[in-house]
Design a protein around this nucleic acid. Structure first.
Lengths: 196, 196, 196, 196
DNA sequence: CATGAATGAGACTTCATTCAT
DNA sequence: TATGAATGAAGTCTCATTCAT
C-alpha cells in the first residue's frame, strides 16, 4: 500500500479514536509510521486529509444502493429493503462520529459541500436512491399504489440514521441480532403485512 | 439578565455561527460584552460553557413532549403527532450543528453522557415519549392494534431527525410550509388514511 | 483575634502547605474565612502579607538568643549551647521552606533585606549572638582561650541550618530524640570533652 | 552547541537573574535566541527545563568530592578539607538561590526528590562523602581517634552552606580571600592545631 | 470595614505548516 | 520524496487588584 493510503487509513483511525478536535498531524504521522513533513507530500493540508477520509465513508451503503436498481422486481421488496437498511444502519453507525464532526468546522463543511455538489454526491443521495427503487417497484405493482416513495424512503433511512446516531451518542454498540431486530420492526411497521 | 445568562447566550450564538472548533473564549467574551476572565467567574472552563449551552437545546421539543400525555384521547392523533413532529423538526434543525459538534470531542461527549444519564435525560427520551403516547392511544383504540409503538416513534422522529440533519448538512433552510409539507407526507405514509 | 492576625496565620498555613508559588489571595482569603477584598483592608498587597509572615519566623530562636546573655557564666556552657542549638534546629526546620521561598522572588528579597537592615535584624544576627556569648564565656574562662568564637558559632549554627535544610529537602521529619542526638554529636565534636 | 544546551544555559541565566517566579518561557526563549515553541521540542514543559538546570548545579563540588577518596593518606588532611570546603562554599554560593527556589513549588520539589532518589544522588551525599573521607583518614591515624566523622562533616559543610546562604540572603559577594579566610578559620576551629 | 464580581495582563502550551538537509 | 526541528500565532486559563455596593 502506498503512503498516501497509509496516511489516510491512519487518519481515519485516529479520527475515530480521538475525535476531530484532538486529531493532530503529529498523531496521524505517528499512526502512519511516517514523519509529519511527509503528510504534506501527499496532502495539501490537514483539512485535505480529513476530507479525503470523509469521502471514503458510507462506502458499503453506497455500494448496496447502486446495486438496488438491478433488484427491482426480483427479490422480495422487504428483503431488498432489509439489505439496504442493514447497510445503512451499519455504515451510519461506523461513520456517524466522523460525519457529525464536520459540524464543528463550518468552513470545512462548506468546502465539503462544494466538493460533493460538484461530484453530484452527498448523503441525501441515499434517500433518493431508495425513493427511486420504491417508485419502480410501484410500477411493478409490488408496493401499494397510494404509497409515497419519498416519504417512505425518508422514514426508513431516517429511522436508521437516528438510531445509529443515538447508539453513538449513548456509547452503545449493537449486536448483529439487535440490528436485524430493529430493522425488521421498523420495516414491519412501515409496510404492514397485508400491504405488500 | 445576569452575566451568566448573557455569557451562555453569547456562547450559543458564537457556537452556531463559528462552530465549536472556531469558538474561542475571546470571541465568547466579546459577544457577551465582558472580559475573558469574567467567563471563569461563572463557568469552570470552556467545556463547562459548552455543556451548559448544550443542555439548553431541544427545549421546545421537550416542552411539547411533556404536554403530550395530556392530549391522549383528545385532539386527533394525527394532529398531535403533527405538533410533535413540527417541534422535533424545528428543534433538531436549530440544534443539529451544536449537538453533532460534540462528536468532535469524545471526552466532552463522555462527560455530557454522564451528565444526562445522572439526570435521566438524553435525546432518546423523545422517542420514548412518543412511544408512550402511541401506546396509550392504542389503548384508546385510536390507532390500529397491530401497530408497533416504538417502531412508529423511531420512524417518525428518525425521519425528522435525518431531515434536519440533511438540511444543515446541505446548508438549506426550509420555510414553514416546506416543513409542514414534509411532516404531513411522512405522517400520511406512516398512518395511511384508512388506518386511523 | 483580629482579622489581620487571622489573615496572617491563614497565609502562613497556606504558604507552608502550598508553597509560595501556589499561594493565591483567593486561597488565603478562604483559609482566613474572609473575602479576597478584605485582605486589602489590612495589607497593601500580597507581598505585604508574605513579608509579614516572613518577619514572624524564627521567633523561638530569637527569643532563646536574647536570653543568652543572662546565662553567661551560669549554666554549663554546653547546656546553654544545646538549648540554642535545639531552638535553632527547630525553628530552622519549621521556617526553612518559607525563608528559602524568597529566593524565587529577588524583588521581594530586596525589599525584605531593606526591611531588616533598617530594623537591624536578619538571620546573621543569630550567629553574632552566639559569637558574643562565646566571647563572654571565654572571658569567664569557661571555653579555651584559643577558640575562635565566630568560627565556632558559624560551625554550630551552620550545621543546624544545613541539617534543617536537608530534612526539608528530603521530606523527612525528625523526632525530638533524633534532634537531640544530632545536636549532642555536633557539640561533642566541636567541644571535645577535655576542652571545656 | 545544540539548541537544547543553549536553552538550558539561557534558562539558568534567567533563573539566576530573575528568580524562579519571574522566569517566563518567553524570557528563556528570548535569552536562548529561539521561539517559545522551540522550548517544547526539547523539554516537556517549563518544570522540565527547571529540573534540568537544577540537576546541573553543584557540579564543581561533586567533582571535588569524587576525587577525595584518591587523596586519602596523601596530601595533608587540612589541605584536602580546604579544597573541599572552598568548592562547597563556591558552589553553594552560586547555586543557593536556584536550589532554594524549589521550596516555593512543593510539587516540583517532590518530583525532584523522586528523581535524585532514583539516581541515588542528592545534596546529603556531599556530607556522606566527607564523612567517608574522614573515616578513612582516621584509619590512617591522620585524625584523632575520638573524632566523630559524620558530625565533623556536618559541621564543616554546614557552616559553608549557611555562610553561602547568608551571603546570598544579604546580597553580598565575597572575594577569593574572604572565602579562604572563612574556610581557614572554620577549619582551624574544627581541627585545633595540636589535634592533627 | 466587608464584599466578591469584574478585570486585563500575561503565563504556559499546542499545533499546523515550512524548509533546509 | 522523506525528514523533523523550528516556528509563531493563537488558545485557555490564572490571579492580584479594584471598586461599587
Amino acid at each position: 500500500m502506498d503512503l498516501k493510503n497509509k496516511i489516510s487509513e491512519a487518519a481515519e483511525q485516529v479520527l475515530l479514536t480521538n475525535g476531530l478536535a484532538k486529531t493532530t498531524t503529529k498523531e496521524i504521522a505517528r499512526a502512519a509510521g511516517c514523519s509529519e513533513g511527509s503528510l504534506y507530500n501527499h496532502f495539501r493540508n490537514k483539512e485535505d486529509i480529513f476530507l479525503h477520509v470523509l469521502r471514503g465513508q458510507l462506502k458499503h451503503l453506497m455500494g448496496t444502493l447502486s446495486s438496488l436498481p438491478n433488484l427491482v422486481g426480483k427479490e422480495p421488496v422487504l428483503k431488498n429493503l432489509e439489505q439496504v437498511s442493514l447497510a445503512a444502519l451499519g455504515d451510519f453507525s461506523n461513520s456517524m462520529s466522523l460525519i457529525c464532526s464536520i459540524f464543528s468546522e463550518p468552513d470545512i463543511l462548506l468546502r465539503h459541500r462544494e466538493g460533493f455538489t460538484t461530484r453530484n454526491e452527498g448523503p441525501h443521495r441515499a434517500n433518493e436512491a431508495v425513493e427511486a427503487y420504491l417508485l419502480k417497484e410501484k410500477q411493478y405493482g409490488r408496493i401499494p399504489e397510494e404509497m409515497d416513495p419519498r416519504a417512505a424512503a425518508d422514514l426508513l433511512l431516517g429511522s436508521c440514521f437516528q438510531h445509529a446516531f443515538q447508539l453513538n451518542f449513548l456509547g452503545k454498540v449493537e449486536t448483529k441480532e439487535e440490528q436485524t431486530d430493529f430493522v425488521s420492526r421498523v420495516l414491519k411497521t412501515l409496510f404492514p403485512v397485508e400491504s405488500t
